[in-house]
Design a protein around this nucleic acid. Structure first.
Lengths: 352, 352
DNA sequence: GCACCGAATGTAAACGTTTACATCGTCCTT
DNA sequence: AAGGACGATGTAAACGTTTACATTCGGTGC
């Protein structure tokens, strides 16, 4: 492994000069810079990242903490983060699948000296946990945090508004028995979506919670929840799943039960993952620009890293959009749902 | 930021003792270990990653180089890698979207001193590039490399066999005009799949390349390629797309042209991404255990890191499986394509 | 010709760990 | 009681950079 010393010796200069030459300092002659560059290239030298970040106290790496990497949602978030980080010359240190709190705290701590800042997407992440496991003032951005405490950068999507708009739409189509497949208990997004659902029903004076069934954001739970609904005494005419994965499970269950969507039961999801438009029938959903979520988080974090001392924290909410396709029974042409090249979908309505 | 010195001072011992206590060395009394542990916890100390890896020459981090993070394929690979790395106490440094060769080489070099080993998934990655930009003997695993040069660890999927089996199946269904939407030019996987397609056709004496149309592994190219096929004078009765994303594009194009799948045109893909079973009609595909691909690569890399000096390189091929759903026209029940909880799919046939 | 100045380069400290080696008790052996 | 062995701890060097400060050297102004 060639070090800066080897280059210095071979080029007949000191290590300081090599360092300066490589880092584009103005304190070095153009001639020496070229000479050093040639020698470095010949020897295949590249600086040792750890050594550099030890002295500079910067790693040009951002950390990302996720509950899991599974599903299109997370991969889209990661993608948005990666692209943005890349564009600003930063690497990405990914850490996922910490199934319990101690594991998460350990992961948090192990990031010290490895990253310049952290993006944490952890539904149960609270302020106290962060403070206890990170140095004070450590650049941190929370994604979909349960609460938005002051002194933190938090980015969320307009969960309430999106759910409200979708359920209102179902109401306008004439549905009165609208079920919801809820998300994970204690999850911030899930709670807000439920709140939006209830608020929409309340506009028509519906206050029953009889059609609320639990779910955990996975396909299978949507499948099971739908089975439960169909066996219940009050069969809903429409089902709103708190995310698309559960809507997919619901679709399977409905198909298996011999029910047609949307004719017998209308169906809608949340997130508008890429897969949604290709389902049969194409799934109506609340569109979230997922990769933009990652992008925003990254930009926010980079700002925090740059201004470290006096960076003002704030909470940001990304708007959602109603995307109506066939599954909810709105009058949408049945043929090709959307061109593969274009944006989210046609028949888009702002939810705000 | 508390360092090891702060802990040592507070605990009334030397830094060496703190280091030993934290790292579980046997050379320290249980009493002092506990005392040091308490002080460390109270001060919120955790070792500085860069400093540690500078001296130990280990980072407990694995690097992953990808062309892009887009699509279910890559996200599944990453997931397999991440889970395995996590389980073995390693972090993941992800780097993607290097659109040209210089950017890739730069990314390769910038990994020095940041990672213990590297997984590279880069279709055009050749041995020479690797050698020129990495220290000799650097632990490296190639995923889907164009050639399998000796002295490298390479992991590929059984592209040839999978494509061969799928096209044979279409032939058995009576199809004679079978088109292929090819993958990226120069891509190893694409080339092998094409070879399998041709070999299968050759068994029936078909040698024409008239129904081979170019593609680039993205949905849109599948859409365009299908349009081209439909406008051509020899309209195929079956289309084999070199991956599922292009098959999805093809499906859109066929739907838009008013053609029914599989009645008018049979369709099959490759990869069996999670989405495949939920399409309308459910997509027949060549199943690849994508996350296992990532897992294998990671295990291989970890072995290389561990035995560094005398680790024997080898090429590994992951088997593929034929998954028959509705889109190819085989006699498959039309109702629920597959339970959401179960494995790849029913009606599975080994392709080897 | 001398002092001074600025540009280019060199010297060495510092970053926070780990670990080989030195040191210091304590206890056992004879 | 002296010597040795061993177990616990301390001391300091090393890892590969960056950068403040020192040094050198040619040129410039008097």
């Amino acid at each position: 492994m060639t070090t800066i010393k080897d280059v210095a010796r071979a080029a007949g200069v000191s290590v300081a000069t090599v360092s300066r030459a490589q880092n584009g300092s103005a304190l070095v002659t153009e001639a020496t810079r070229r000479r050093v560059g040639e020698v470095a290239a010949r020897l295949g030298y590249s600086p040792h990242g750890a050594a550099r970040s030890l002295i500079t106290n910067r790693t040009s790496t951002l950390g990302v903490l996720l509950p899991d990497l599974y599903g299109e949602f997370f991969s889209e978030v990661i993608r948005g983060i990666d692209q943005t980080a890349q564009r600003h010359g930063h690497h990405l240190l990914v850490s996922s699948s910490h199934d319990d709190r101690p594991a998460l705290e350990e992961a948090l701590r192990s990031m010290r000296g490895r990253v310049d800042g952290l993006i944490v997407m952890w539904p149960e992440m609270d302020a106290e946990t962060a403070l206890r496991n990170l140095p004070a003032g450590f650049p941190l951005v929370l994604l979909s945090a349960p609460i938005a405490p002051d002194g933190f950068d938090v980015i969320t999507v307009a969960n309430f508004e999106g759910a409200y708009a979708m359920v209102c739409h179902l109401l306008e189509l004439g549905h009165r028995w609208i079920a919801i497949i809820k998300g994970v208990e204690g999850n911030a997004d899930a709670a807000e979506r439920l709140r939006g659902y209830r608020a929409a029903l309340a506009t028509r004076g519906i206050a029953s919670t009889a059609l609320e069934v639990p779910g955990d954001f996975n396909e299978e739970s949507g499948f099971r929840a739908t089975g439960k609904l169909l066996r219940g005494e009050m069969r809903p005419t429409a089902i709103f799943a708190a995310n698309d994965a559960m809507a997919i499970g619901a679709l399977s269950a409905l198909r298996e039960a011999g029910l047609r969507v949307p004719d017998d039961v209308a169906l809608a999801g949340f997130d508008d993952i890429p897969m949604a438009r290709y389902l049969d029938p194409a799934l109506s959903s609340v569109h979230v620009d997922i990769s933009a979520l990652g992008e925003h988080a990254t930009l926010r974090l980079l700002a925090a890293v740059r201004d470290k001392d006096q960076h003002e924290h704030r909470a940001e909410t990304l708007p959602t959009t109603l995307v109506l396709r066939r599954s909810c029974g709105a009058a949408v042409p049945a043929s090709r749902p959307t061109a593969p090249t274009t944006g989210p979908a046609p028949f888009t309505t702002s939810s705000l």
